[in-house]
Design a protein around this nucleic acid. Sequence first.
DNA 1: CGACACCTGATAGACTGTTACATTATTCGG
DNA 2: CCGAATAATGTAACAGTCTATCAGGTGTCG
Lengths: 152, 152
Amino acid sequence: MRKSELNRFLDQAQAMCDERGVRLTAQRREVLGIIHAAGQPIGAYEILERMRQGGRKPAPPTVYRALEFLLQEHLIHKLETLHAYVACSHPDHPHASQFLICSQCGEVDELESAGLDGTLSDLARTRGFRPQSHTVEVSGTCAECAQGKSAG
Amino acid sequence: MRKSELNRFLDQAQAMCDERGVRLTAQRREVLGIIHAAGQPIGAYEILERMRQGGRKPAPPTVYRALEFLLQEHLIHKLETLHAYVACSHPDHPHASQFLICSQCGEVDELESAGLDGTLSDLARTRGFRPQSHTVEVSGTCAECAQGKSAG
DNA sequence: CGACACCTGATAGACTGTTACATTATTCGG
DNA sequence: CCGAATAATGTAACAGTCTATCAGGTGTCG
């Protein structure tokens, strides 16, 4: 098991938190690591289970507090349609995100289309609406699963 | 209280169901009526409570089954970010929807931008992704609340 | 009537998330 | 270093959302 990629990710997160003056504690780091290692959307209670494999017995608020922090710092995203969380693909800068969610394999592709963000904002403003945040989640079939469809 | 608007809405829904050969039963009609009358997103358990004011004591599955039917027939929409339901603004034709949700007053504006739908689909396809459905919910401040902001 | 599909009732439980309060850790001023 | 203030964690209980399951009712069609 190659740990270096995960550690690089966590170290980058650590650096960003340091920069912002917030604390990526061991616990938050653990939760972030679990989410990143999952590679797919993962639910709060699944995270909880994995934390418990270390012998400790954390309760739901522990996980939810860590998630809240990580969401605030844009280190993870919440997928509303799945009630699950994914690590942010490019946490180094603020951005609006859109997600392509494969209903077959569960893979999630995080887009960062400023164009779509702009289109959506413009559309909102034509109605006099002042947008603050948005949730864009597309469900469908990813390229890989679409390929293999004829074979399966 | 002017009932005619609500009745017109329900009759239109009835007509559409007849056309499609599906049954808008009294119970489903009641749930649809409650959602429409609410005028704002309403949760499943809130619907349940209102149904109980008639003396009956329906259980959660009753509501969820009605909701499932109404969603299938596109008579209502689910707002994923609120875990709540709204009546469809234009149920007479199939359409992709986007929602502007005011975080102050709770009002929801249902958009039907084919352009945004297309942009999103195109974006997905550039990644080899075959979109099937999408969830677009924008949180912010509606025109009315933005107006009154300086006064309040 | 009998068979079948559909709708409804009702109990229980799973999964997701929150409140409230006690405890521990960390930071900061002196 | 001490103590106060702030931030983070532990713990128990609970609320909200949704589903599984089994049983009973209603309708239609032959």
